[in-house]
Design a protein around this nucleic acid. Structure first.
Lengths: 132, 132, 132, 132
DNA sequence: GTGGTCTAGACCACG
DNA sequence: GTGGTCTAGACCACG
């Protein structure tokens, strides 16, 4: 479930954050579901608990999970509360990456198809249309 | 031309790489054009020459520029080698970022529009169509 | 009456303390009124009795309620003992928070208005004036 | 300059965050001024560097300082960029604390005076009036 | 020299 | 049992 590459340039905690975001976005993990405890996951991945905690804290500050002292860590309900700052940041990153993709010869059609498929897989957090 | 943000969390050499990619993608810098020398640019930006060199090396390994010993660094012609490995990597990153965008409520239509606009601005390195 | 947020970072006993203080300050709960017993409230809120007890103990030490062994817990009369130590502590906290508010751009006028409204809502535990 | 109470219930890193905020708000530390390095401050206060780093990171995420890898940590310029979420949070805390103050018998006049003095000391981040 | 990541491990607060 | 704080100390990336 969590494939970590300890040799990667990418810090372990960032890899964890990415992977967990992915599982949340694709609704493999759903609202209020409990995550493995810091210690349990640390043991499973043979990683230091502090590193797990760092990942959980980052996810919490990004609004993807919430942690309760003495109880555990849980998936946050999907937030249609438009964090406009965060949206701007993602749009900005997208702009750069899409430009590079187009430059590398990935066609508009391929990109459109990619979006269609991703949206289908995710289920679309917010509907484009009123009548489903 | 190179606006670096010394306050940014992003390392300076990464900012340089990004900025140069942008100038190449938007064809402000064109094929076989010579880049300023490491020392010249370092002096202009009042930045350590090692930092410039690191950025140039990164751009070279990504196929955006090439260096000739004793002559200097130059912009590579577009879609240097249809590096399929690189394309896979960018698609992979795009997949993650697009998923997050959709999750945050950015609509399919907004994404389509974004792509249209970027393609128009870039002029499309490679045509969508078979007959050029 | 007691809306607890189990997802909050704030411990449940602290939420209880805050909420009870609020009810006392706004005179929803009045002097010498009896509070629900630890067990009753624990059952109502489906919370561990130890948590309720901890909240009651904290309120007692802050002078907001008093307990009689074998009888129960009761609301203390207003301005229990003009505890100057407590007043100093609150002033100290206020000083920090007001400074931050001003720094963040909240205007003096907004703050004045806030105080006016709060005082009106509370009814002013103690009069501004010397002659009651 | 930094008086820490290691026996306090308040974590050391939070005490540090508070103290540094105070120094920034009162403009003892000014924009782009460099903070002591993590190691230097750790040594001065005989505290573990990780604890200092935790405090610095918290201040960074709150927008009070910025850190550059390899360079150091610096005071952020005052941000009239209304972080509305943060403002709401501070207003909310203020509301509770002001209510308690009024309940404890601190008069409206005392509170007004407090605000006046604080604003004078700080210099008022944003002016109430157009003509200074 | 600077901040950032990570480990190993202790102790505390909450419930 | 859970997350949170803290120490001691190693090694890395940036410049």
């Amino acid at each position: 479930m969590f494939e970590l590459d300890v040799r990667s340039r990418k810090p372990i905690y960032e890899q964890l954050v990415e992977r967990l975001k992915e599982l949340i976005i694709t609704e493999v993990l759903t609202a209020d579901e409990q995550l493995p405890s810091v210690r349990t996951l640390a043991h499973q991945l043979t990683i230091n608990p502090n590193t797990i905690q760092k990942a959980y804290r980052e996810l919490e500050s990004q609004g993807y999970i919430y942690s309760i002292k003495g109880k555990g860590s849980f998936i946050s309900p999907a937030t249609p509360n438009l964090n406009s700052e965060k949206i701007e940041k993602v749009k900005n990153e997208l702009s750069k990456l899409l430009s590079e993709a187009i430059y590398l010869g990935i066609t508009k059609d391929e990109l459109f198809k990619m979006i269609q498929e991703l949206e289908a897989a995710i289920g679309g957090g917010v509907e484009d249309d009123q009548n489903p």
